[in-house]
Design a protein around this nucleic acid. Structure first.
Length: 341
DNA sequence: CACTAGAA
DNA sequence: TTCTAGTGG
C-alpha cells in the first residue's frame, strides 16, 4: 500500500500513441502482483498448469508486454532487491492480512459462497520467489530488459527517470513520486479496463499522466513538503498520524511548513527520528547505475519450450506473441534506418 | 487481465 | 465490423 496522497494530484489523460517510441519503466512487483490477483478463473483461483504451478503472471506479462511492444512502447521491468529494515513492519502487516484472508477463504469455500471465495482468494494471493524468477526468465526470453534494484523497484525506476535512461515510470501507486519521479503513467493496460478494489467489477479507465512539478506548483508546495505530507499520512516506511489523510496533511504542512513543526505542535516530537529515517530513505534510497537497456529479438524456441511444454500455454498464442514482438522490432529498426538515409 | 469465438 | 461472454492455464 503506497501513501494515500494520490487525491492531491491532478492527472492528464493520454492515449497509447503518445507513448510510441517511449521507454517506460515498470515496477515489476507492482505489475506481477496485479496479474496474480486479477487473472483468475471463474472459481477465483489463479491460473495454473496441470502440475499446479501458477501461470497468471506469465499470461499477463506475455500478452500485455507483447501488446505494448506492438504499440511502440519500449518496456523495462525493474525488480525489487532487499527491502529496507524500515519496511519490516509493513511487510509483517501484509503477511498477517494475507493469512487472515486465507482463513476467510477457507470458511467461504465451506459455505460455498462464490463471491466471498473470489474475494478472499484474491486477498490471500502471495508472490513467491518462483513467480519472480519465472517472470524474469520470461521477459528475458521475450528480449525485454530487466533491471535489478538493490532495494525498492520504485526508487530504482525513479532514479532511471532522473538519469533520463527512461521516459516514464508506470505505476499504480504514488510511491514513485515520493522517490522523486517527475512523470508517472497510471492505468496503462491493453484493454483499458481495471478492477475495482474489493469487488469483482471492471471499469473502463484511460491511461493518465501525472506531472509532478506541475502538481507541486499548483499545490504551492515543494517536493520536500510533498514528502512531508506523505510521512504525516503514513508510508510503507513509517506510520503516519491518526486521522491524517491527504487533505489534512496538506493543510498541516501549509500551516507549519515541515513535518517536524507539525509534530512539535502536536507534542509528538518523539516521532521525529522515525520520520527522519523514512525521509532519508525516500531522498537517498539505494539504487544502481549498473543496468543495460537493450531490446532483443524474442526467442521463440525458448518461449515455446518454457510456456508451452512446461506451463501448458497454447503454441498458437505463444508463437503469435513472438511474431508480434519481432515484427514490431523490425519495423522500428527500419524506421530508424530510414532516418539515417 | 487479455484473448477469442460467436452474437449482434 | 463491434461487442459480449466465456476461457485461458
Amino acid at each position: 500500500m503506497g501513501a494515500d496522497i494520490g487525491d492531491l494530484l491532478e492527472r492528464d489523460e493520454i492515449s497509447a500513441k503518445d507513448l510510441d517510441g517511449k521507454i517506460v519503466a515498470f515496477d515489476a512487483f507492482n505489475v506481477i502482483y496485479q496479474f496474480v490477483t486479477t487473472i483468475r478463473g471463474r472459481d477465483g483461483q489463479a491460473l495454473t498448469d496441470t502440475n499446479g504451478n501458477i501461470t497468471s503472471h506469465l499470461a499477463g506479462l506475455l500478452y500485455r508486454t507483447t501488446s505494448f511492444v506492438e504499440s511502440g512502447i519500449k518496456p523495462v521491468f525493474v525488480f525489487d532487491g532487499e527491502p529496507p529494515e524500515l519496511k519490516a513492519e509493513t511487510i509483517e502487516k501484509r503477511r498477517e492480512l494475507r493469512d487472515k484472508a486465507h482463513e476467510k477463504w477457507k470458511l467461504a469455500v465451506e459455505k460455498g459462497d462464490t463471491a466471498e471465495i473470489y474475494k478472499y482468494a484474491q486477498a490471500s494471493a502471495r508472490i513467491d520467489p518462483q513467480v519472480i524468477d519465472e517472470s524474469k526468465m520470461l521477459l528475458s526470453m521475450m528480449g525485454i530488459p530487466i533491471v535489478e534494484s538493490p532495494s525498492e523497484g520504485e526508487a530504482q525506476a525513479a532514479f532511471m527517470l532522473e538519469q533520463k535512461s527512461v521516459d516514464y515510470v508506470s505505476s499504480q501507486d504514488y510511491d514513485a513520486f515520493i522517490f522523486g519521479a517527475p512523470l508517472v503513467i497510471r492505468n496503462l493496460t491493453v484493454s483499458g479496463k481495471r478492477k475495482l478494489p474489493g469487488k469483482n467489477v471492471y471499469v473502463d479507465v484511460a491511461p493518465e499522466k501525472v506531472d509532478f512539478q506541475k502538481n507541486l506548483a499548483r499545490l504551492g508546495i515543494t517536493k520536500e513538503q510533498f514528502i512531508d505530507i506523505a510521512l504525516l499520512v503514513g508510508t510503507d516506511f513509517n506510520k503516519g498520524l491518526e486521522r491524517v489523510g491527504a487533505k489534512t496533511g496538506l493543510k498541516l504542512i501549509r500551516e507549519k511548513g515541515t513535518f517536524e513543526a507539525v509534530l512539535r505542535s502536536k507534542e509528538k516530537e518523539d516521532l521525529i527520528p522515525e520520520f527522519q529515517k523514512a525521509k532519508a530513505f525516500f531522498e537517498h534510497p539505494p539504487v544502481t547505475r549498473d543496468y543495460v537497456l537493450r531490446w532483443e529479438k524474442a526467442d521463440a524456441d525458448k518461449m515455446v519450450e518454457f510456456l508451452c511444454r512446461k506451463r501448458d500455454f497454447s503454441d498458437d498464442r505463444v508463437l503469435n506473441a513472438c511474431q508480434k514482438i519481432n515484427a514490431a522490432r523490425m519495423a522500428k529498426k527500419k524506421t530508424t534506418l530510414d532516418q539515417w538515409f
